[in-house]
Structures are given as C-alpha cells and as structure tokens.
C-alpha cells in the first residue's frame, strides 16, 4: 500500500511556515510583480497574478498556486484511484472512477496474463479495484494495475469523501493514514478520487477507521491534525 502514500505527499506539502496562504475567490488579486509565476489555479492579468478558481492561494518562492478546497475530482497522471468495473469489453475493462469521463483498463495492463475468454473471472462488473492512472488523453483515462498495492479489492467496504480532503486524510508522508491503520488494525487504501476502501478483522474496527477518516475530512482547517487524531483515539 505504499503507492498512494508516495503519490499523495507530493500534493500535501502543507503547513510549512515559510509559505503564506489565504483563501481566494475567482478573480481575486493575489500578488503584484513580474517575478511571480502563475501555477495551477492562478493566472496573470497585466502586472498582477490573480486567482482562477476558489481555493487556498499559496506563494512558494516565485510560484503561485491555488489549492482547491472543494469540488469534483479532476484526474491527473500518476494518481492512484479506486473505481468500479462498469463494463467488460473485448480488450479491457471500463471503470467508473467518479470523474467526468470513464476510465479504461486494458487487458495488457493487468499484472498477470488473462485469457480473453475468461476476463470476468479476474474482474467482473461491479468489482472494485485500485488502479493507477498512467495516461490521460483527449478522450478518456487509461489505467494500469502494474504497481504495488494495486488490483481488485476483496471484502471490506468502500465509501467516499470529498477528493480535495484526500491529502489531509493521508497526512504528511502518510502520517495520518498510518496512524489510523495502526490504531484500528485495518487495511486502508485511499484513492485520489476520494474513494476509500477499508478492510479489517471485524466490522467494529472498520467502522472506527471510517469514523476516524470522516473526522479528519471534516476538520480541514485545523493545524496539528495528527496530534488531534491521537487524542481522538485515546477517548
């Protein structure tokens, strides 16, 4: 399960003291000057850099980014996502990953050889899987199962949270999710699309893990969340 953690902490570089952050609305002025580079969610308007969308504006050196606080999942290359098989085609599977377009998992991208006549013995309609996005082309998303922790998810249950909360749920270097896994003794996979799969020895632990995750997802703007979580567990 290392996969999702490595992906996520690139996007969850947060709380570092050197960065200034504030909530901005679309069109709002962020910073003035030619030296700044508008990144994701920001753009240049004359001399100023303004926000292109609603979120947390972050000034990291010369780079200006707006981190979304809410909204639908926008797929990116390299993301680990959870999805559900919605169709079995002749050369692969069609997967619903809760984004604007459906994703496609080619038969060649499965970890082992699969007979084309027996594809639904490996993944049938309704099955849930963890997969990695390996390309996004004009039309459609391509998935792969080659990688650690990827594949069909058996047992347990899946629920969803807002995709913008995923970095917080994982925590810096995966600290939050590791804590939740340890304290509840469950196995958890977090997809960047906000789908979360939990499997434990018994239902009580699974529900405890889910409550913990929902607790974190609700408290997005609190600092020192990992410590708060430890407190939550001791109650």
């Amino acid at each position: 399960m290392e996969n999702e953690i490595n992906e996520a902490h690139q996007e969850s570089k947060e709380d570092s003291v050197s960065k200034k952050r504030k909530i901005v609305v679309p069109g709002e002025f962020i910073v003035k000057g030619e030296d700044f580079l508008p990144g994701d969610g920001a753009k240049r308007e004359g001399d100023n850099v303004i926000a292109d969308r609603y979120g947390l504006a972050e000034i990291a050196g010369r780079m200006i980014k707006v981190i979304p606080l809410s909204g639908a999942y926008v797929p990116r290359r390299g993301n680990v996502v959870l999805g559900r098989i919605i169709d079995v085609l002749f050369n692969g599977w069609l997967v619903d990953v809760d984004s604007a377009g459906n994703a496609f998992l080619p038969i060649d991208e499965s970890p082992r050889f699969i007979n084309r006549n027996e594809m639904d013995q490996f993944l049938a309609i309704g099955d849930v899987l963890a997969a990695k996005i390996w390309s996004i082309k004009g039309r459609g998303i391509d998935l792969t199962l080659k990688g650690r922790g990827l594949g069909k998810l058996d047992g347990g249950f899946v629920f969803r949270i807002n995709p913008s909360r995923v970095p917080r749920v994982i925590g810096r270097e995966g600290s939050m999710i590791t804590l939740i896994k340890e304290k509840t003794g469950t196995n958890i996979t977090v997809g960047q699309n906000g789908w979360i799969w939990i499997k434990g020895d018994n239902l009580d632990n699974e529900i405890k893990a889910r409550n913990a995750i929902e607790f974190v997802a609700d408290k997005v703007h609190v600092d020192g969340l990992t410590d708060k979580m430890e407190q939550w567990f001791s109650n």
Binding site: V25, P26, G27, G41, D52, R53, Y54, G55, P68, L69, S70, G71, A72, S164
Partner: peptide
C-alpha cells in the same frame, strides 16, 4: 460555481 472549484474569470 466558485465553491465547486470551476475555473472562473470572476464572480
């Protein structure tokens, strides 16, 4: 629309 994170020029 802003809350949904849609890219916008302005409110």
């Amino acid at each position: 629309l802003a809350h949904a994170g849609i890219p916008m020029r302005d409110l």
